[in-house]
């Protein structure tokens, strides 16, 4: 009888493992954002206001070996005077679980609109930066980062 119990429990274990396997295949591992979600986020912020490409130097690696730590630098051309300066730079990624990455808020005290940080990227994706000037004009830049090992969920 002892061996019977043992074999039954092993069968149960197998069933459980099988069920878990099926569940993991059926359930998407991560719901990732896409380009449309990024567009929606930008629309939420600025509506249909036109964006001009340029003025932003978006510095990201072309290939990131480790998606957990990807350096990003943003540099916007601006005199950064009291009347003409960069207010914010929003950074988005179109392949992470959430589209937002970071928002930099500058003041004329900064002297130049330049900031760096490090981000996580789940997969190869486009990084989009939108800069808002003190006069309300919008500028944008886009760069693709190829990710070898994703930085989400481990």
């Amino acid at each position: 009888m002892v061996s019977g119990i043992r074999s039954r429990s092993r069968r149960d274990t197998m069933k459980l493992a099988l069920a878990a396997g099926i569940a993991s295949v059926l359930a998407p591992r991560l719901a990732l954002a896409d380009a449309k979600q990024v567009e929606e986020e930008i629309k939420k912020l600025y509506g249909d206001k036109p964006q001009t490409a340029g003025k932003i130097k978006l510095d990201v690696p072309q290939i990131a070996e480790n998606g957990l730590v990807v350096p990003i630098s943003v540099d916007v051309e601006s005199p950064m005077s009291g009347t003409d300066y960069v207010k914010t730079v929003h950074v988005f990624g179109d392949g992470n679980p959430l589209p937002n990455v970071v928002t930099f808020r500058f003041t004329p005290e900064c002297g130049k609109a330049s900031a760096s940080t490090r981000m996580r990227l789940a997969q190869t994706q486009n990084i989009i930066a939108i800069a808002e000037m003190s006069d309300g004009k919008l500028f944008s830049a886009k760069a693709e980062v190829k990710v070898t090992i994703g930085g989400c969920g481990g």
Partner: peptide, 10 residues
């Protein structure tokens, strides 16, 4: 200077 960080920050 200010920065709003989202979960995508390392």
């Amino acid at each position: 200077f200010e920065a709003d960080w989202f979960p995508s920050i390392s």
